[in-house]
């Protein structure tokens, strides 16, 4: 555990240095804000157009879409963070081999890199939600937020995504740099299946089945319930309205445990395989 924490601390420190260092702080804050904000705005405009042309159900899905999109921005960042750290350290910096031969924990280091990336960008989430509440009239009010639920759901969700990111880092250890799109590809694919953009009920049945098997679907639902008092209103037909919050929490907890059980041996296996094939210091020069 001590080795893990030590490596986590160094990974977080390095992540902070490299992630926040490429521009001046003002531009960095602007960039962090504009990215999720512009995503939210695009979705809002699309939704408004659809509602005007009469193709929507009639219910105002704006809060659903807005919260889903903003929260999902963290998923995309975190999912890609560890895989990116592997590629960057191994092929751009040429340093992964030097880290691998130290007695520290590779997992701890990668978790630290992921933590740095998320914490640097995390501020954008509450700021964008505030922007939504003030400018787009999204019904998020400080007095109606379920803070304990928000805390628990956030933690469980972040754990689930972190373990998923660890799996992707393991996959990345075994592939060359030109295939470094794994994190982005997975987060892009999950965007469709997690109900970030639209209720999963609009999907064909077989896709709904996939969506219900993805833990992130429940995370986004939990975040909506914590932030938006009307999230469980049956009028939205999100496909998860009937699920009680306690059951939702149980699913999230079970998913976090399952992801841990799957990802830790998978990452170990990937590291072993990378050592077997001599990939820890691979430089594909793409």
């Amino acid at each position: 555990m001590q080795r893990f924490l030590q490596a986590f601390r160094v990974g977080a420190w390095l992540g902070w240095k490299t992630e926040s260092n490429w521009t001046n702080p003002l531009f960095y804050i602007l960039w962090s804000l504009l990215l999720p904000m512009s995503n939210g705005l695009i979705m809002t405009m699309m939704l408004r157009v659809l509602q005007r042309t009469g193709n929507a159900s009639g219910a105002d899905l704006l809060p659903y879409v807005f919260i889903g999109t903003v929260v999902y921005s963290i998923v995309a960042l975190l999912l890609d963070s560890m895989a990116w750290a592997v590629l960057e350290d191994r092929e751009r910096m040429g340093m992964l081999k030097y880290i691998a031969i130290t007695p520290s924990s590779m997992y701890g280091y990668l978790w630290g890199r992921g933590f740095a990336k998320v914490s640097i960008n995390f501020l954008a989430v509450p700021l964008t939600l505030t922007f939504g509440a003030l400018v787009l009239d999204i019904p998020i009010r400080l007095s109606t937020i379920n803070w304990p639920l928000l805390l628990v759901v956030s933690l469980l969700g972040l754990l689930i995504v972190t373990f998923a990111a660890q799996i992707l880092a393991g996959v990345t250890l075994m592939i060359a740099r030109h295939a470094g799109f794994v994190g982005q590809a997975v987060s892009g694919a999950l965007y469709l299946f997690t109900g970030a953009l639209f209720p999963i009920t609009v999907l064909p049945n077989w896709m709904q089945a996939i969506a219900r098997a993805v833990p992130l679907t429940y995370w986004l639902e939990g975040m909506r319930r914590a932030l938006w008092v009307d999230a469980q209103n049956p009028v939205y037909n999100t496909g998860l309205n009937q699920l009680s919050t306690s059951n939702l929490l149980l699913i999230l907890l079970g998913s976090a445990v399952a992801m841990a059980v799957i990802s830790i041996p998978l990452q170990r296996r990937a590291e072993h395989r990378a050592k077997e094939k001599g990939l820890l210091d691979m430089n594909t020069a793409y």
Binding site: K17, T18, M95
Partner: peptide, 8 residues
């Protein structure tokens, strides 16, 4: 090789 974290 020219390894090292250039930003550090």
């Amino acid at each position: 090789e020219s390894s090292g974290y250039g930003l550090l």
